[in-house]
Amino acid sequence: MQPVSKLERRVITAAEQALTHQHQVSLIDVLTGLGWVSHRQVEVWQQGRVPDLESLTAVSADRITDALEVFHRWVTSRGLRPSEVGYLSATRDRRPLRFTAAGRPEQELAFRTHWMPADLPERQRERLTAKQSKALDLVVVQPLKDFTCTGCGQTGADMLTMEDAGPLCLTCADLDHLVFLPAGNVALTRRAKKNSGLSAVVVRFSRSRRRHERQGLLVEQAAVEEAERECLSDEDARARRRERDRERREVADESFQQELAEAIARLFPGCPPARATAISRHTGVRGSGRVGRSAAGRALDPEAVTRAVVASIRHKDTDYDELLMSGVPREEARDRIRADIDLVLDRWRHQR
């Protein structure tokens, strides 16, 4: 009988602990259990901010291969059953995550495979596999300092998303139509997320705790209102709604919004008056960073007004948000719905 190496003991200990706590175990569980990659680094990888997980590990690829061989001998000896899990990034395109730099199929499969007890009920096995395969929430960051958007080149926005080219402001990421719902009311947050076709988790880095902490959600305005109606039986929800109404009144610039609605009506006489009013209210909120609050928007520049109308049509009259949530890249989604937008614009320009 060959003596058990130190690596073998450590791999088996990490695997046993993961299996006990989760009823399943993967190679990533082993690597985090060994301390070769941290949970924080795994989170960075899941957010799509690095090309592969291997680049974050503290050991060489050969060392990972050694651990994988020990791990496979252990799962065979335990009679565990494999289930392949899909890993998707928390980016707008929901692209598959890559585990290794080389990306060889057999290596990628080894990471994607989760191992479960043979006697685990099939329903529980399917539930665990579905949970692991579910794409993570989109993530929006409240930066600690100013950043320059790689899309429009502007500096100083309140929130950003990270893509391959770098940080994007919410306008360039097509998330500026969403409203911020602060964390604190679990029921309201849960219902708003459920009711919103498009949503994103907002986080902020804590220097003292050295981690990103959840601040709230970006969700559709209608989803918040529906969630508030569902929570009206709760006194806390009623108080929150009063507070939100007060905040809305404070940031509303009614005079400018009226002028913006009139400008929309001049450029697009076929636009329903109620819709023009809704567009002006949405894009004209102080501090929102939307088109209506830009210098051109405040000057009622026709191009800026048109951009505000196009943004509204994109989110309200096409299946653009559904395409994004299904993983279609932003530029491809825009190409698909461009003709639909042009039809609405043409109708609004010529109908009275």
Rank of each mutant, 00 (worst) to 15 (best):
G166K: 09
F256C: 07
L68Y: 12
L19M: 08
T148D: 00
R349I: 08
E250I: 15
D342E: 11
G216F: 02
W36R: 03
L218I: 03
Q257A: 03
F268Y: 15
W74T: 02
A261S: 08
A222W: 13
I279A: 10
L217K: 03
T113Y: 02
C169F: 09
V186H: 15
L53K: 05
Q124A: 11
Q46K: 14
F268L: 12
C169M: 09
F99C: 01
F268K: 05
T155W: 01
H315E: 12
A299M: 07
R275H: 03
T171Q: 14
C231N: 13
S208M: 12
P302Q: 10
M116Q: 14
R275N: 00
T171N: 12
C231Q: 10
P273A: 14
D335P: 07
P143M: 04
D317V: 06
E106A: 12
V310C: 06
L56S: 05
G297D: 02
L138H: 06
F71D: 00
S38P: 12
E8T: 00
V344F: 09
V139T: 15
R240I: 11
P96H: 00
L53F: 07
L56Q: 05
V291K: 11
T100R: 13
I264Q: 10
R10M: 09
G33M: 07
A130L: 11
Q17W: 09
V75S: 08
V291A: 15
C231R: 01
C149N: 04
A90T: 03
Q107I: 08
A308M: 04
Q257H: 02
E8M: 09
R347W: 02
E213S: 12
V309Y: 10
R127N: 07
D301G: 07
A15F: 03
G33N: 10
M325H: 00
A278C: 06
A14P: 07
N195M: 01
D245K: 14
D234A: 14
E228I: 06
D234Y: 09
S77F: 04
A311T: 03
